[in-house]
Design a protein around this nucleic acid. Structure first.
Length: 369
DNA sequence: GAAGCGTGGTC
DNA sequence: TGACCAAGCTT
């Protein structure tokens, strides 16, 4: 880390030239056209582990649907999750909804204006709290994300592993010691620089506004810094998916409200060793008293952040059954359960869009046509 | 500290 | 293609 006294010139470059560059070059983003803390909050939650270009349409739709913290607090969790469909990390939506209700009940609908109050809310951690406090309320706190860790590591030519908490704390402290009055723009500028110029691969050093002070550029180490321990790769899980079709409708189950894809709808799915359809058939027999033979219709791989599902997909087409029957007892029992139990439902293909369905399953719909 | 938690883009 | 990565938080 740079010594604060010796490196006064380098610090001034970082402050002055970065702010100047940001003012001239910043992207025109919808959430940069407002100081509304609620809008800033929504954008920062969406930005967690998500590239800005990806979240923009979600952001516009979300504030259209939920223009105030009150409208978000009054909405149902299903509506909020549906608005989040496709963005991933769905606990963000649940926390957002919870936090909105807390803000309405405990804060009279006013966003807390300080870092220490903000990070009490679910889904708001050190980065997001710092971002909202500095950008929306001009509080002198840092907002250290992956971009900032990379930019500062390179600027100081630091060999510290940015995956380690101590490194993040050290960089946070250092930034807080050099924050200018325009703290929101400074924090955003560091991130913008990391996103547009000081990128992980092939950084555009020739266009960098603070190149003259960059120790990594001087040492020729921009390709080596930051140091980051690589994460272990995903385990592969072999899964069977069962698509039950009755009277032209498809059977869906709701996932638990914790864990992977929490609160989202899904086709019934089961871990399997054989992959011949028998494991998912057994599971489906909890809902259906009589089930036709599984017909294999294809495979699909879905990559999550920590696991991979290798899915074998089977259709149980009760409308074109191999076995003969005069009644549809399974339909009746399942339909009754779907009215009394919110964990399951039936939807025609044209109505599937009513449900919040993760990509892992929505992409399976292509196998049906 | 480490693991769980989505999806899309890039090279 | 696979490996890496993205404006992180929670447990």
């Amino acid at each position: 880390m740079l010594d604060t006294k010796k490196s006064q010139l380098l610090i001034e470059i970082l402050q002055t030239d970065l702010l100047k560059w940001f003012e001239e070059s910043k992207r025109d983003l919808p959430f940069r056209r407002t100081r509304n803390p609620y809008f800033i909050w929504i954008s920062e939650i969406m930005a967690q582990q998500t590239q800005i270009d990806t979240l923009i349409p979600y952001y516009n739709r979300f504030i259209d649907n939920f223009p105030t913290v009150f409208s978000l607090a009054l909405a149902s969790i299903d509506e909020v999750i549906k608005a989040w469909e496709g963005l991933g990390y769905y606990s963000r939506a649940r926390n957002l909804h919870q936090a909105a209700r807390i803000i309405v009940t405990d804060y009279d609908g006013m966003m807390p204006a300080t870092f220490s109050e903000l990070i009490k809310l679910p889904g708001i951690g050190p980065y997001t709290g710092g971002a909202i406090a500095s950008i929306a309320f001009n509080q002198k706190v840092s907002a250290v994300d992956g971009n900032v860790l990379r930019v500062i590591s390179r600027y100081c030519n630091s060999c510290d592993d940015i995956g380690e908490a101590t490194t993040k704390k050290r960089i946070t402290r250092w930034i807080e010691s050099i924050l200018p009055d325009e703290v929101g723009a400074f924090n955003e500028g560091l991130m913008e620089l990391g996103a547009m110029i000081c990128t992980p691969k092939s950084p555009k050093c020739l266009s960098c506004p603070i190149r003259s002070g960059c120790q990594s550029n001087a040492a020729g180490t921009t390709g080596l810094i930051p140091i980051k321990t690589k994460k272990q790769k995903q385990r592969i899980k072999k899964m069977e998916v069962g698509i039950v079709k009755i009277n032209g409708q498809l059977f869906f189950v709701r996932r638990p409200d914790t864990g992977l894809l929490s609160g989202m709808w899904s086709f019934p799915i089961a871990e399997t060793a054989a992959g011949d359809g028998q494991d998912i058939k057994k599971k489906l027999e909890e809902n259906f008293s009589e089930l036709c033979k599984p017909i294999f219709i294809g495979t699909s791989r879905h990559v999550f952040s920590h696991i991979i599902w290798d899915m074998s997909v089977f259709i149980f087409d009760q409308d074109n059954r191999v076995c003969e029957s005069t009644l549809n007892p399974y339909y009746i029992s399942a339909q009754r359960e779907s009215r009394s139990n919110p964990q399951v439902t039936f939807k025609a293909l044209s109505q599937v869009d009513d449900l919040a369905l993760p990509i892992a399953f929505s992409k399976l719909l292509a196998l049906l046509t």
